[in-house]
Design a protein around this nucleic acid. Structure first.
Length: 286
DNA sequence: CTTCAAACCTGTGGGC
DNA sequence: TGCCCACAGGTTTGAA
């Protein structure tokens, strides 16, 4: 379940159910799920056997299980990944990719992923700008829920790009955690059109946008995340209900909550952008 | 170096 | 009912 609030819901579940446990055995049922672990499945499972999980951590949409040996199991859920905590003996899910059994009693951890855009990998933990991160995601920017997140630096980063504002907002090396849903929600809240060129974005508009992104993701987290179907669930298989609070994303044809104008949908990067034609007017010349 | 489209997958829903 | 196309919450890749 893709964007930051949904990943944070999963992290909280992993911290509650998996932190402190010792891995007994790992099974890789689909090699593509560990394609980013370049040493292969045998290396992956061999090195994990006997490791103890200290904590579940996250930056942006990436999460990782910190191990006692200075390594981490890095996970990305891609478009359809799930981390499920299931009692042993529960029938395998159709798209079960990796199973983690633990020492002693208690449920197992399952990585389930229909589209296999997500995956797991082992990585060394390294120090980057005062933070401990898996080496392979050292380039990912801090997210708005990070205590050390710097909104002004984020605005500078967005404005330094020569592109459309939504493209910049989705660039995980500038600000992390924002995906298509929360980008549209943030733009609606700050009354900005998605195609506004970043060099026409004022500091005030940028600050408003970052603040809106922070707010909307915090609100979504409190609601347990956003999900339209059973594909996006917490470790117990439950869905959040922030979809009821969406103002723009997926609202094509429905009246804007501010002005009543029907929300429109535009094609955007092989997907969609939803916006209010009146509150978020197209920049001149486009 | 930056920016962008295409590729990577499986499944669902709408139109015919 | 079946077929085909459009579309889905993300990242990486390679080309320009």
């Amino acid at each position: 379940m893709p964007e930051l609030p949904e990943v944070e819901v999963v992290r909280l579940g992993l911290q509650a159910h998996v932190a402190g446990r010792e891995i007994a055995k790992v099974e890789v049922l689909h090699d593509r799920a560990i394609r980013r672990h370049t040493l292969g499945a045998d290396d992956f499972t061999g090195r994990l056997a006997g490791a103890r999980i200290l904590a579940a951590r996250r930056r942006g949409k990436y999460l990782w299980l910190e191990l006692s040996d200075g390594e981490a199991v890095l996970a990305h859920l891609g478009m359809s990944g799930q981390m499920l905590v299931q009692p042993e003996g529960t029938p395998d899910e159709k798209h079960l990719r990796v199973r983690v059994r633990f020492a002693g009693d208690g449920p197992e951890l399952r990585f389930v992923d229909q589209r296999t855009f997500g995956g797991l990998a082992l990585a060394d933990l390294v120090e980057v700008d005062g933070a401990s991160l898996p080496s392979t995601i050292a380039h990912i920017a801090r997210d708005p829920m990070d205590p050390a997140f710097d909104p002004k630096a984020a605005v500078r980063a967005l404005r330094s790009r020569r592109t459309e504002v939504k493209r910049a907002l989705l660039d995980q090396t500038l600000v992390s955690g924002v995906g298509n849903i929360y980008a549209d929600e943030s733009l609606w809240r700050s009354k900005l059109h998605w195609a506004r060129p970043t060099d026409k974005l004022t500091n005030a508009q940028g600050a408003k946008l970052i603040a809106a992104a922070t707010d909307v993701m915090n609100e979504a987290l409190l609601a347990g995340g956003t999900s339209f179907d059973a594909l996006y669930v917490n470790v117990n298989g439950q869905s959040g209900y922030f979809d009821r609070s969406l103002d723009a994303y997926g609202q094509e044809g429905l009246p804007c909550g501010r002005c009543g104008t029907p929300i429109r949908r535009d094609p955007f990067m092989n997907r969609s952008s939803f916006s209010c034609p009146r509150c978020q007017p197209r920049p001149r010349g486009l």
